[in-house]
Design a binder for these strands. Structure first.
Lengths: 123, 123
DNA sequence: CCCCTGTTATATCCATCATATAACAGTAGG
DNA sequence: CCTACTGTTATATGATGGATATAACAGGGG
């Protein structure tokens, strides 16, 4: 997998990286038990600092997407904490739905976008 | 309308305020043509700095939710730019859907949350 | 004329982001 | 055994953004 980092984005580099890895897991480009590249090699590949990659990995560990093994590095291990994720998603969706409502975007249109994204990730 | 600001949140104060105002518009607590409180009075009400409120208002102006009149202050005026909002929402939904997919949260469950949020806002 | 409106200009303090250099402990392989 | 690689930690620096404070200006209303 290759990572696309936008250095002009206002989103922090380590968050862009974290989100892309979550996307990679969702799209089955990373499989359970598989190791992510080492912090140093990935930093070299992308052209950013080692600590920035480490920060992304630490966040992924905190959020339950990987477990870190001293030998194998960051290993994909998604824990099944649905409750916490549901609350988190509900908060994020609230703003999305509020914006939509203001602009007369219907719930059906949101549903369509969600479906398109699910299907896009499954191939 | 009363605003609930969480000073311990990692989300910036001006963004919390902006989101709550968008929510207020969506929930029809602010109506088209109505004025928001002045930057100074709202700052006093919430207990934050004038410039922080001003930053929220400026963001809302930039994003097409209010127009600023020197006399009336920030007036609710939602422009109908659906295209730009759709793109923005699609980006935000991508991360949401990726997280859901990792945790085996189905598209039906997302649809349900979206519907609940729409209904909650409409009363 | 005074008060309130948004707006602008500085300045300061603090947290975060991203970088750099360095060192340490554990493991795998030659 | 030694080298090379892993994550981890510590420390320092510069840049940026968030939030604050004080101040001043221009315009409209009563």
């Amino acid at each position: 997998m290759q990572f696309e980092i936008d250095f002009n984005s206002d989103e922090a580099l380590y968050l862009q990286l974290r989100n892309q890895i979550i996307l990679g897991i969702a799209m089955d480009q990373f499989h359970e038990g598989e190791s992510l590249p080492s912090v140093r090699s990935l930093a070299d590949m992308i052209g950013i600092n080692m600590h920035t990659v480490n920060k992304a990995y630490t966040a992924l560990k905190q959020e339950g997407y990987v477990k870190v093994d001293r030998r194998k590095g960051a290993v994909i291990a998604v824990d099944a904490d649905r409750a916490g994720t549901m609350d988190e998603i509900r908060r994020e969706l609230q703003t999305v739905v509020a914006k939509s409502s203001c602009r007369n975007i219907s719930r059906e249109e949101i549903h369509l976008m969600v479906d398109e994204l699910f299907e896009w990730m499954e191939r």
